[in-house]
Design a binder for these strands. Structure first.
Lengths: 214, 214
DNA sequence: GCAAATTAATGATTTATTCAAG
DNA sequence: CTTGAATAAATCATTAATTTGC
């Protein structure tokens, strides 16, 4: 806690004299704009200028700008990494003898949340998995056009390479459609439970109750 | 129990079988359950499994599941955002007569964002900021460039050695040759004249904003 | 009670970003 | 600088709720 926080609670209300910078909407907009302009690590000069400009909208210091860019960049990267991993899972674990580790492990199981009942704060798993730089060896799928009657353009394009979607004809003969058979959790009968309400724990994929089922 | 009629009334009638999926209560319940479990962007395999499971309750395709998660996630986020803003407005509805924006911007929302650094990820304001022709302060090649010295160490050393970030006490004498001069071809494609929603338009590095009081 | 008109939800499309690679 | 992949945001469009009048 830097005691040197002269927070100018602009306005008048009893703003909680926060010890840390509270960017205003305008400031964020501008910073994001700059980021989009390609700025990643602004030079000292740039930081100064940015700070000066942004100060018009509220208290701000150079370090705030500096940190903002650092954090923003880092987060974008993390996000990207996470997505990459997601991609890998999609691509490889087509044969998951063992799905996700039995415990809150990031490796392989990005679909678990630390806390259930979450409607807010889409936190990220923040996996520490290091993946090669080029996981995204895209199979180079031709970009086909979609006039206006696509069965899910996004979905289609998103999973095109995997042959998941057939959409049309309602005949999802997706390659190895080996799911409806039994897949997992065959022993339980929670699924059919949905006669009305009560949706307990729907574990489609892993027949394990995990290590911390609450 | 509402009679969840499937759209599968096809056969003899020319009934325009619903053009879009109409989920049953069971399906929705299960999807929500899965969402609560943390599933946000199911993999292709998961989609297939889910689809298969849910098909016993009515017609459904993979794309429906895919879309459902996309929409649900997006709308949950919207809700969350809205509530946050609402909360903020409630507590900071004062009108800060300070720092009147030099430019006619129409930012009338709240003045503060929660932005709790952690847990919250940068909500893309999508600020459509308009800028002049390519002012790329720096090409997207940060990997190769490491010009100034604001990086190596944390802000600490940075502001210590250069005093740029100091803000008040800092002395803008860094003069690090900002190689940002790599102003490449002006790609004015994305730049579009915004009407109404006009942002301060700040180009720090060219000279000064059009509406700068500097 | 039913049906047309209006409104609210929400499924489906399109568009705009991001980062990475060539 | 361009292309590719993959969302997420924004938007469009259609269905279900509901309101209203008979």
């Amino acid at each position: 806690m830097e005691g040197d926080n002269n927070v100018v609670m602009d306005g008048a209300s009893e703003a909680p004299v926060s010890s840390r910078w509270n960017p205003t909407k305008e400031q964020i907009s501008m910073l994001e704009s700059l980021y989009r302009q390609g700025i990643r690590t602004p030079s000292a000069e740039q930081i100064q200028q940015i700070t000066s400009r942004l100060r018009v909208y509220g208290h701000i210091e150079g370090k705030n700008v500096f940190y903002w860019f650092q954090n923003h960049k880092a987060r974008q990267r993390q996000k990207q990494k996470q997505e990459s991993m997601d991609y890998i899972n999609r691509y490889f674990h087509t044969t998951p003898p063992l799905f996700p580790p039995p415990c809150p492990n990031v490796l392989g199981g990005p679909y678990y949340l630390p806390h259930n009942d979450v409607g807010f704060y889409p936190q990220y798993q923040h996996s520490k998995v290091l993946l090669p730089s080029g996981i995204r060896g895209r199979p180079r799928t031709e970009k086909l056009e979609k006039p206006r009657a696509l069965d899910g353009a996004a979905y289609n394009s998103a999973h095109q390479g995997y042959g998941i979607l057939q959409g049309k004809t309602g005949k999802p003969s997706i390659g190895s459609s080996a799911e409806n058979s039994t897949t997992t959790t065959p022993s339980s009968s929670e699924i059919e439970e949905g006669s009305g309400n009560y949706q307990p724990f729907f574990d489609f994929f892993s027949g394990q109750g995990s290590c911390e089922s609450d």
